[in-house]
């Protein structure tokens, strides 16, 4: 266990995370080319919650998601996940990394059939035959009829739903969503939000949703965090966040007054 700067969390150190905590982010910062893009002193992500992260572009939201997916270690501090500690130059064991997956704003599908795309993650895990799971996932996103079609022929909304299906089929413990519905029409937005709710309710999946859209955060999330200039300004239950935010900047953002 790496030594932690005293005073970072004030509660003392415990070797294992409490059951209801999925991630514990402790004194994490990220520096690119000498410029600090992220600095979070303390944040927990709870098991089985939908946490929305809102804030303007460049607030460090996507950087945080890459760290939560264990694709990019923090420059300082640590992220705890189960028994695993992700620190500077850290590398997550494959089994841990495979519990988390991301759906991005701009999905890049493989130049293969739709069903091959959905099967892909299972294939990486050595599951050669998974027609049933693939089918079920496509059914869930309402695209079963396109299973044999080439992925490159899909529309933006369809491609995003395939991207969601290929993540879902892995039944990850945590699903990270990076602006999943930006650029989509209302029909597809509604569909994707419904799937997100179902995953959370029926499978108890933990979801972290990065979005520009505060209305979407309001509709989906249990808790909302507001990020600005690489810092977490405030995180609160959705109702509190929208109705009685503590920080004046959060209040301005929620009102739509924030100029950035």
């Amino acid at each position: 266990m790496t030594a932690l700067k005293p005073g970072v969390n004030g509660q003392g150190l415990s070797a294992t995370l409490p059951d209801h905590v999925r991630y514990s982010i402790e004194g994490v910062s990220k520096v690119y080319a000498g410029r600090q893009v992220l600095q979070i002193d303390r944040m927990d992500i709870r098991r089985g919650e939908i946490l929305a992260l809102v804030g303007p572009s460049g607030a460090g939201k996507s950087t945080l998601l890459r760290m939560l997916n264990f694709l990019e270690p923090p420059s300082a501090g640590r992220i705890r996940y189960g028994d695993f500690e992700y620190g500077p130059n850290g590398e997550a064991p494959l089994a841990t990394r495979r519990q988390v997956t991301t759906v991005s704003q701009r999905p890049v599908l493989l130049n293969r059939a739709v069903q091959a795309n959905v099967h892909f993650g299972l294939h990486l895990r050595g599951q050669r035959k998974a027609a049933r799971q693939v089918d079920a996932a496509l059914q869930q996103v309402g695209l079963a009829h396109l299973a044999r079609q080439q992925a490159r022929t899909l529309s933006g909304g369809e491609a995003q739903r395939v991207a969601l299906a290929r993540a879902m089929v892995l039944q990850p413990a945590v699903l990270l969503l990076d602006e999943p519905t930006a650029n989509l029409d209302p029909y597809n937005v509604g569909l994707i939000e419904q799937i997100v709710r179902t995953l959370n309710r029926e499978q108890g999946m933990t979801l972290v949703l990065v979005t520009h859209n505060i209305f979407q955060a309001h509709r989906l999330a249990h808790r909302v965090g507001f990020m600005l200039d690489g810092r977490l300004v405030e995180v609160a239950d959705t109702q509190t966040f929208f109705e009685a935010p503590v920080d004046p900047r959060t209040a301005a953002f929620v009102r739509g007054d924030m100029v950035y």
Binding site: R66, L94, T101, S104, L110, G121, L124, R166
Partner: peptide, 26 residues
Amino acid sequence: VDPQLRQQVQSLGATTWQTAWTVITE
């Protein structure tokens, strides 16, 4: 090949070799 593809493939749980192989097949 779209550089985003690598990250998304990794995020789906690919090892370094699996990622390289996927990019080559793409």
